[in-house]
């Protein structure tokens, strides 16, 4: 859209646009700013308001982080380890399943391929939360409750179909001449998949992995049900226990815990952000 207008009018228009952007930014970021600075107040201090948020009595105070991380009743380090194990497990597991299937759908011909692919797409329509009750019963029968298996394998929110679809779309854009060259060198499908397709699909793999990471790390409903002992809780569930324990009190401690849970996600997102955007553009949401 080429804006050709009077320079003054253009300048005013531009300032208004920036003003709007800044207002939205403030509403988006202010809660996080408040969260972080509240965590720097003394744990016994009163709930800070905007007036004294940045100037706590007695200066900034980092003791809350030590307090929360060494908190006796809730092993925060254990929660963090659990979150890492579960998230990495889900990412590796989903990437393996999705990329193999995507290769099959994108490169090989076999009977019923399109029908099976259609069923894959249909499962994307099933709301994950609806699956939770029967999944719980199934996982219980497997004896997987309160184990890493139960937290990783039946991940109902992470749509395997979504990952397969996204990777298939990307694999289709990899030139077939690369496959043919490898085939002439005597490579089988598995080696073409490993040495040709996967290396050229790194950005797509990063996108699927990034979404899987964020969804799993921040998921609440499934780990809340699938874990029952304190030592199997993830950070997200541990945080809710923490929040319930202090309902409406000890704001500095609560916000310290919230900050500890949010920081890894934020760092991960800022590092990987281009893959999030790319993934959405690539999944071809054009209708």
């Amino acid at each position: 859209m080429s804006a050709v207008g009077h320079p003054v009018r253009r300048c005013v228009g531009r300032s208004l646009l920036y003003l709007a952007l800044v207002v939205i930014t403030v509403t988006t970021v202010l809660p996080f700013v408040w969260m972080f600075f509240t965590s720097l107040h003394h744990k016994d201090a009163q709930l800070p308001t905007i007036d004294n948020l940045f100037t706590p009595e007695g200066g900034y105070h980092f003791g809350n982080y030590e307090y929360v991380l060494t908190f006796g009743e809730l092993p925060v380090w254990r929660f963090a380890v659990n979150s890492c194990v579960v998230t990495c497990g889900v990412v590796v597991f989903q990437l393996t399943l999705c990329s193999l299937a995507a290769y099959g759908f994108a490169r090989l011909r076999f009977r019923g391929r399109d029908a099976v692919f259609f069923v894959f797409l249909l499962t994307m329509m099933i709301p994950a939360q609806v699956l939770v009750v029967p999944l719980f019963a199934i996982v219980r029968n497997f004896g997987w409750l309160d184990t890493y298996w139960g937290l990783i394998i039946p991940y109902p929110y992470l749509s395997t179909a979504f990952g397969t679809f996204l990777l298939r779309q990307f694999f289709l854009t990899v030139p077939r001449s690369l496959d043919d060259a490898a085939r002439l060198d005597g490579c089988g499908d598995l080696r073409i998949f490993w040495h040709v397709i996967l290396p050229s699909a790194k950005p797509a793999l990063a996108t699927v992995g990034a979404f899987a990471f964020i969804w799993t790390w921040t998921d609440f409903y499934w780990p809340l049900l699938a874990s029952s002992s304190t030592t199997m809780r993830t950070l997200e569930v541990g945080l809710s226990v923490f929040s319930d324990a202090y309902a409406g009190t000890m704001w500095a401690l609560q916000m310290t815990a919230a900050t500890i849970v949010l920081i890894p996600v934020l760092i991960f997102f800022l590092g990987m952000q281009r893959f999030f955007v790319r993934g959405i553009v690539q999944s071809g949401i054009k209708g």
Partner: peptide
């Protein structure tokens, strides 16, 4: 290539059947 195709999609398909379609039926 026919059977290889099934081999490639088998893990994801079995997974979806057990953890997506079976729960709906169950």
């Amino acid at each position: 290539t026919n059977w290889r195709g099934y081999a490639f999609i088998a893990p994801a398909t079995i997974y979806l059947v057990i953890f997506s379609l079976l729960p709906i039926v169950f």
